[in-house]
Structures are given as C-alpha cells and as structure tokens.
Simulated assay, not measured.
Amino acid sequence: MAAATPHLRAGTNSVQADPISLGIDIGGTKIEGVAMDGNEHLLACHRIPTREGSQAVHDDTVMLIRHLLDQLGPNQGPVTVGLGIPGRVDANRGMVDDAVNLGIHHMALGPAVAKTTGLPVRVENDVNIAALGAASQTGDTLMTPGATPHSQAARDQARRPATEPGRDGPRALPDHDDHTVAFINLGTGLAAGIISGDRIEHGASGAIGEIGHIPVDAHQFPCKCGQRGCLETVASGSAAQALWPGIAHPLPDLIAQAGQGNQQAQDVLDIIGHGIALAVQIVALTIDPAVIILGGGMSKTGQPLLDLVTEHLNRSAACSHFIASLSLPDRLRLAPADLPIAAIGAALAGRMAADSRPSDFIGKETAS
C-alpha cells in the first residue's frame, strides 16, 4: 500500500506529515501488524510467524515495527505503537502475565519495546483490541443476520435508521458517541471485550468480559480453569473440537452434517448453539450493549453461525416475553473476516500512548 500523502500547511512551503499509528497483534501462530494514518486508512500490512519466549516476542515485535516504518518511507509524522497480546495485561504499565501459548510467564513488554524503538507504546489484551477494532467498523463491513456479506442489500439495511417505519432488519451502530459495543471472541477460549464511548473497559482487575469461566452449563464438562460447567466448555473453538473431534474445522462440518440428518451432529450443534446464545444473553443482560459482534476463529463460519445463534436466541424469546423484548438477534453482527481487526484495534489503542514518553516506562520493570 502507498504511504500517506503529507498535508501542506496553507501559506507556507513546509510539510506537515500525518501521524502514524502502528498496531501489532501478537497471536499464537502469527504476529500481524498494520500502519494507519490519522484518518484510519490502512497504509501498510505485514505478518510473520510467532516464536515463543519473551525475548523472541520482543525481537519479532520490534522487527515488525521497523518493517512497517520502512514500508512507509521518509517524511513520517509522530508514531505511536499499540500491542495486543493474550494473557493478563496491565495496560497502564505495559506488563504481561501468563501468556501461556507464547511461553511468557511475566514480561514487561511495553517498557521493553519502548526502550528498543524509542516510541510510545501501549499494550492491551488481545480480545480487547479485537473488540476496539471491530467496534470501529461500520455497517458496510459488519455482517447482519439474514444478510449476504458485502451485498448492497446488507449495506442498505445496515444504514437504515433503527426507527425507520417498516424496517425488518437489525440496527446499525448508534450515532451518539457514548454507545456500548460488546465483542464476543469465539476462539480457542471464550471471552468478551467491552467498548464504551470508543474506549476499552478494563474493570477493577482487568477480568471484565471473562464470561467463558462462568459455570452455568448443565453438562458440567471440566474446564482448564479448575471448575466444571464453564461456558467456554460448550461455546468455543476448543469446545467444538472436543465435542466433534477429528475435524479441522468442526463447526462448518457440524452444520453440514446436521443439515443432512445426522442426529449426533444435531445434538452437538444444539449444545454449541445454545452455549453461544447463552453467552450473548449474559453479555446483553449485564452490559446491555447496542451491538454485539461475534468474532474469533469460529466467526469464519460466516452466515451459518449467525443463523445458528439467532435460532437459539429465538427459542429463548419464544418462552420469555422479557427476552423477546430485548430483540437480541437485531443487535448481532459478525466481524469482517477480510480485515485485520485486532491489529487495527491495537493501532487505535496505541494512540493513547501519544502523551507518554518511552522514558516513562524504561527502568520500571524488566522482561523475565
């Protein structure tokens, strides 16, 4: 992608370069980075394989930052960096704990990258930055129930006002600035990110949105957290693999097999569909967001996933006027599969680091 065109100040010959926001999504298999300008246009993208260990994650992150800056060329404006990573994250201090899939027990990721690059850095949990990236998208990119992705009808439907007479489709994102958006990450685990007024909600201990470990499922399957019946055991990618083993992409196969009359597949699909719908209800009843976006690996199933969750939400609504009154299917969206929303969210989160200096981090902690 081409670099941003610098803006000329009126009445002068000087050039004022656009600010640059770099976003790095550090995942278990790949590290993906983007560069954006002040108008949130993607200027560059790049990804590399993930290597485990604190030093490797630091080195690869720095290498990716430098690669993105090299792609942009000279005349860059001020640069900020946002990093998203699994595990428990102290966003204010840039600390990461227990990112087990990356081989990280404790690491001062923000201070280390800030010291090496000389750039302001902010670190956030990976689900939170995916939530921020997804919430930044419009009705043009978020798929709605019953709509074909990227079709003109879907775009027209998403643009209509929520109060339009005769409207039979879901709402677009509200126009006001203080709306709340929830992002449910249906990945290896299950968690939610909450965006309120375009900012990430963290809670008192950073555990906000950890809905996967609410023990409410009657099957009482054991969870890695030590409990039984956690929502994650029936509403996640790992749950689908455990309940329908031996298939690389179990959810699409389950949907296909159930459609062909396979009763065992239908029984498993009911467990998963009910679990995800329950996750939606929990988020809706505790946060009451205007929009609930489904993302993560399972979301790549596409429209059939929305149809499955909508079916189970409608089952609950059929026996509860209260649930029916919430119009939960109307709030559902599917995160776009063709955009690096986590890296975009990291870039947006990184702008919060603009007022800090690398020296604010340096010396406070060291990687371990």
Rank of each mutant, 00 (worst) to 15 (best):
A2W: 11
A3F: 04
A3S: 13
P6F: 08
R9S: 12
R9K: 14
V15T: 14
V15C: 08
I20N: 02
S21C: 09
I24S: 02
G27K: 07
G28W: 08
T29I: 07
I31W: 04
V34F: 07
A35R: 01
M36L: 15
A44T: 13
R47V: 11
A56S: 14
T61G: 05
V62N: 05
M63E: 14
L64P: 07
R66C: 05
H67F: 10
Q71E: 12
L72D: 00
G77M: 06
V81F: 04
P86C: 11
R88L: 15
V89T: 04
V89E: 00
R93L: 13
V96N: 00
D97F: 15
A99W: 06
L109V: 09
A114K: 01
T117P: 03
T117S: 11
L119Y: 04
V123S: 02
N125K: 14
N125G: 09
V127I: 13
N128V: 08
I129Q: 07
A134I: 02
Q137W: 12
Q137R: 15
T138I: 08
L142W: 02
M143H: 07
T144C: 13
A147R: 08
P149C: 09
P149N: 11
S151D: 12
S151A: 11
A162H: 05
P165W: 10
R167I: 14
P170Y: 00
P170E: 04
D178C: 10
I184E: 02
N185H: 05
L186M: 06
G189M: 01
I194A: 04
I195W: 04
I195M: 03
S196R: 13
R199D: 15
H202D: 05
G203A: 11
G203R: 07
S205Y: 12
S205C: 14
S205W: 12
S205G: 15
A207W: 14
E210P: 01
I211C: 04
G212Y: 03
I214K: 09
I214S: 12
P215D: 04
K224M: 14
R228M: 13
C230P: 05
T233Y: 02
A235S: 06
A235V: 06
P245C: 11
I247W: 10
D253G: 03
D253N: 12
L254K: 01
A258M: 06
G261K: 12
N262S: 14
Q263V: 13
Q264P: 03
A265H: 10
A265F: 08
Q266I: 06
D267G: 10
D267E: 15
I271F: 07
G273W: 01
G275I: 02
G275E: 03
I276Q: 03
L278K: 15
A279Q: 05
A279G: 13
V283Y: 02
I292F: 04
I292T: 12
I293W: 02
G295H: 02
G296L: 06
G297F: 09
G297N: 09
M298N: 03
K300S: 09
L305T: 00
L305C: 01
L306Q: 01
D307F: 00
V309F: 06
L313E: 01
A324G: 11
S327A: 14
P329F: 00
R331H: 08
R331W: 00
R331C: 00
L332R: 05
R333Q: 08
A337G: 09
A337V: 15
A337P: 05
I341K: 06
I341N: 04
A343N: 08
I344D: 00
G345S: 06
G350A: 10
S359F: 09
S359L: 12
D360F: 07
I362M: 11
G363S: 02
A367Q: 03
